[in-house]
């Protein structure tokens, strides 16, 4: 691989990592919606605060997974780029 191509691939990989992290928007919206619904549930029934909190955190952690996939892809593109080997 030529010198120019190597730098070109590295630069575009960093650009791709940045664009890929746009996927962080989805989990943000989902977690915010879950937190809002959790607030509404606690307001309606303050006695169930503990179980609402547990369920909300569990659901938010599961909703976060898609964002973390994009994070892993971005980290691989930057630190362990398979195209520049």
């Amino acid at each position: 691989m030529g010198e120019f191509n190597k730098f070109f691939v590295e630069g575009l990989a960093c650009l791709g990592a940045g664009i890929g992290m746009i996927a962080g928007m989805g989990p943000g919206i989902g977690q915010g919606y879950a937190a809002g619904q959790g607030c509404a549930a606690v307001g309606r029934n303050p006695g169930a605060k503990g179980s609402v909190m547990t369920t909300m955190l569990l659901g938010q952690a599961v909703a976060e997974t898609t964002g973390l996939y994009s994070l892993v892809v971005a980290i691989i593109l930057i630190f362990a780029n398979p195209y520049t080997k």
Partner: peptide
């Protein structure tokens, strides 16, 4: 795979 990547991604992002 999703369980391991969830834990790994969270802790690794904090470390970075």
């Amino acid at each position: 795979i999703s369980m391991s990547l969830r834990l790994f991604g969270n802790i690794l992002s904090g470390t970075i």
